[in-house]
């Protein structure tokens, strides 16, 4: 039962509010409101961070793109900066739910929720993003991919810590990214599979690549072997296919009557990874 709803103006006030009883942070609340209603989550105080000005917006600083915790998916999807320097995230955020959901739900919410198929989190891992975590001790930065503590469990202790932002290096002109998503419907649908890729080219060869797949594990899954295979290679169709097969072989999708069998998802994933890598490289060349 929710007994109180507070709207702090600063991160410090929010941290203080969190100490009172069983409090939970709320940003967009699109998932939390449902979880509270269905008793999947419990809280007696909601601490709404939407009144904290410093948590709003997207900015670029020293080659890093920083997205505040109060920033919605739609703001990210529409941002020219993100479209230009991290298109994988613009596409991922743009494919969440529906416009109404994207106007409310936040990118950082995707991390806190720790659902393996949360579109924006998958893209953030591909971008090598770090979360800015504030508690009474100060501020620390943790790679987003290290924040998963199991299915739908985030390592950030929401009773005393706040993710205030995510940051990642803006992609240079020799770098590119791509987001590939397979869903049963064009809107209002979680992905059956999604693949986020970021790649850097140097002298016609792949300098580095990050390939992330979901939901094929308890968290967005890096295809490290495939990344390694592609390193320093010229991106031919053959090597991309080989890497895609390697990537898909790492995946461990569940059998789901709603979102596809393991056999189907494992097999079709090869094609999605292939498309992701191909498009990211094309994007890097442009």
């Amino acid at each position: 039962m929710i007994n109180d709803y507070v709207l702090p103006k600063t991160v410090e006030d929010a941290l203080a509010a969190l100490k009172q009883g069983n409090a939970k942070l709320i940003a967009g609340g699109t998932d939390l409101m449902l979880d509270l209603k269905s008793c999947k989550a419990a809280a007696d105080t909601l601490v709404d961070i939407n009144g904290i000005k410093e948590l709003k917006g997207i900015k670029e600083s020293d080659g890093n793109i920083i997205i505040g915790a109060g920033t919605t998916h739609q703001e990210v999807a529409e941002s020219f900066l993100i479209q230009e320097k991290a298109v994988v995230l613009a596409k991922a955020s743009g494919s969440v739910g529906s416009l109404q959901i994207r106007n409310t739900a936040t990118v950082v919410g995707n991390i806190v929720n720790a659902q393996p198929a949360a579109d924006a989190a998958v893209a953030l891992v591909a971008l090598g993003a770090e979360a800015e975590i504030v508690d009474k001790e100060g501020t620390i930065y943790q790679p987003v991919e290290n924040l998963y503590a199991g299915l739908a469990k985030c390592k950030v202790d929401s009773s005393c810590q706040i993710i205030t932002a995510v940051r990642f290096p803006a992609l240079f002109s020799n770098q590119g990214s791509a987001y590939v998503r397979l869903a049963k419907r064009g809107a209002l649908a979680l992905p059956m599979l999604c693949v986020a890729v970021a790649a850097s080219l140097k002298d016609g060869k792949i300098e580095w690549v990050r390939i992330v797949m979901a939901p094929v594990s308890t968290k967005p899954l890096r295809a490290l072997e495939a990344e390694e295979l592609l390193k320093d290679k010229e991106p031919s169709e053959e090597v991309i296919l080989e890497a895609s097969k390697k990537a898909a072989a790492m995946a461990d999708p569940r059998d789901s009557k709603l979102r596809g069998s393991r056999a189907y998802r494992s097999s079709v994933l090869v094609n999605l990874v292939k498309r992701g890598i191909t498009e990211a490289i094309k994007n890097a060349r442009q």
């Binding site: 409101m33 449902l34 739609q74 106007n103 409310t104």
Partner: peptide, 15 residues
């Protein structure tokens, strides 16, 4: 100025 689903927006967010 933005379309939202009022069924999942906490009322207090409308302050």
């Amino acid at each position: 100025g933005k379309a939202v689903n009022s069924c999942i927006v906490p009322a207090m967010q409308a302050v």
